[in-house]
Design a protein around this nucleic acid. Sequence first.
DNA 1: AATGAATGAGGCTTCATTCAT
DNA 2: AATGAATGAAGCCTCATTCAT
Lengths: 210, 210, 210, 210
Amino acid sequence: MSITTQPRKRRKEDRPAELMTAALGLFVEKGFAATRLEDVALCAGVSKGTLYLYFDSKEALFKSVIQEGVVPVLVEGEGIAARHEGNAFELLEKLLANWWAGIGETNFAGIPKLMVAEARNFPEVAQFYYENVIRRGRALLGSALERGMASGEFARLDVETTIDVVIAPVLMLFIWRYSLAGCQSTPADPRQYMAIHLSLLRAGLKGSQV
Amino acid sequence: MSITTQPRKRRKEDRPAELMTAALGLFVEKGFAATRLEDVALCAGVSKGTLYLYFDSKEALFKSVIQEGVVPVLVEGEGIAARHEGNAFELLEKLLANWWAGIGETNFAGIPKLMVAEARNFPEVAQFYYENVIRRGRALLGSALERGMASGEFARLDVETTIDVVIAPVLMLFIWRYSLAGCQSTPADPRQYMAIHLSLLRAGLKGSQV
Amino acid sequence: MSITTQPRKRRKEDRPAELMTAALGLFVEKGFAATRLEDVALCAGVSKGTLYLYFDSKEALFKSVIQEGVVPVLVEGEGIAARHEGNAFELLEKLLANWWAGIGETNFAGIPKLMVAEARNFPEVAQFYYENVIRRGRALLGSALERGMASGEFARLDVETTIDVVIAPVLMLFIWRYSLAGCQSTPADPRQYMAIHLSLLRAGLKGSQV
Amino acid sequence: MSITTQPRKRRKEDRPAELMTAALGLFVEKGFAATRLEDVALCAGVSKGTLYLYFDSKEALFKSVIQEGVVPVLVEGEGIAARHEGNAFELLEKLLANWWAGIGETNFAGIPKLMVAEARNFPEVAQFYYENVIRRGRALLGSALERGMASGEFARLDVETTIDVVIAPVLMLFIWRYSLAGCQSTPADPRQYMAIHLSLLRAGLKGSQV
DNA sequence: AATGAATGAGGCTTCATTCAT
DNA sequence: AATGAATGAAGCCTCATTCAT
């Protein structure tokens, strides 16, 4: 009939996402252990018990947050790579920009910090994250680097390690934002940070020919 | 006069350091919240109560671990910079190599991960860390970059942001080691990682003249 | 007119009985506290909320299970006693056999265990059970014993206490079945158990004359 | 020095026993689920946390209560049987009297009720109880019965089942005391109850010869 | 009549902290 | 200085109960 939001029915379907959003916000803010489920519930506007209608335990909630939160972001990047036709460095730029834009505006940007902090306490989750996010993201970057090396646009370097070096400053950008940002220890202007990172890469990766 | 001189006396003086070493190991392994003081004590071979003879609280222990653990490392770097006479990039190389060598072999390398994970839960400690480690380390790097820019060896870039970009891969190297290393998601060969980082920097920072 | 007459209507009237049957099964299996209403509902094929349409609370359900479940069984025994014409021991045999047969095949046999376990937590229910089941059952047995003592068939013993002794092995038979039966700690052959009990009674109760 | 009870040291050794005594009292009174650890602690004069210095969990406490509480009682009985020289029925009398006296004065008498109520919820404990208490107790009784049957003092009956019948009234005596005693549904005079039980047995077991 | 999502009180358990020895 | 038994606040989790649909 009207737009009035059948509050009951709609809730049922949206609840898990609402809860995971609330949980993500607190997990990236305080870490897993220091986050109280009561606060997650409060933050989502429900009671403590409601969490257990959708998640078996605090740990299960944590896993879900990680597992649901990050995979979609990579799909977009894979699409960009598939459609790209210009040179390799332009692809790199696009990928990094997209990654930064797509994640950087949301709390998903806090997941790297969260994984870094909790990987050892949740080996299963770390394994999942490695298989489904890290490995896939690296493959994406690696294909761009190899494209450039094949065409002579980039110098020949060890690809795997170059991926590490290329990706590290972007990860740190996100990590800083969720850790020491309060101490003004973070790049004041992320755009400039990315620009310099890319300018270093442009010159640093350059191969023998154009 | 044997080598085992006054084992008692020595013990007493070493206690705080022993406790901090044990604590560091567990903190960087499991994080602050997930570390139990009982395990710290066990690890140091003392009883739980003994910890409180030397530290007022778990948080005080944490602060001490951070505060005592990292400052000394910087002094060495400052000495290197003061004595250096070659070109700026060689200084950069020395500083990064020294930092990596001096910290990389010990659990101090886990402190960046620890700070990243706990900065928001312990703003005071983060502030201390920022003032005494980050700011000082950045000043060190910044002076090397400025030296190179002044001489025309490096291109002119925003110094503060360039520091971020230069330092990020080194920080990530340490962070990886204490988080996802178990998933083989860490650079297999740190030396090569550092080499590529430096090679990218060498070309990327290069200014108009030598 | 088929046999499946008005399935709706019938359902409605049977609900309480269905729920009580489900509850009895779980109560005698796990005890009152360890039985979850959700499981009772599941077991009866309804939702949790439906239970509250018929019973005010878990305790009310418990009371109903006890109260509805056992009284009918005694009526039959009272009828047997009223109609009996032979000697006292034959009546005893009939009563015990009937009791065992009438209860032993259903989950009602679990009620003694249930009452034993929960009597102290639910004094009201215990009181009800005592007034309506125990007292009545004892009166039945007592009249048989007194009949035998009056005729000289049985020796003169304290009637109340003799009732206890006569009834205890039968109660234990039921209790065992619902507790340690899994450990093969229960009489393997209830029929033989009852036979021996009766044979001991026959000789033990015997008075000066037949 | 003096009798003054080094409260600290002595405590350490006595605590488990104190806690188990308190727990036994509440378990037999209210059952496992309905007993709150806070009450156990209160009852033992300690705090909630102290329980966990000695027992891993509520269930572990339960197991300990059962396991520590009952075995010693059987040893005495086995000694009596070994030393007995009279006829079989006198041995039976001694065993039952000893069992009743040794257990009947303490809360251990509540353990049969406890096991009956919880056996299905704690199969491990039930198994332990069966192996270490029931089986052993039955062996004891069985040897007395067999001695009597061999000498012709007792009639030949199925031994295992006869054990059940002999033991059931004693078990019920204890069970009653911890369940429906409040309803005056328990034998008013346990001594008379035992006397009648034994008198029924004496006549009922009697064999062809004396 | 029936549902099942939501609630929140209550219990088990952990662990930083204290203190008598 | 050192111990380790004891504490109790705090958090996770369960489940009887409610109520809008």
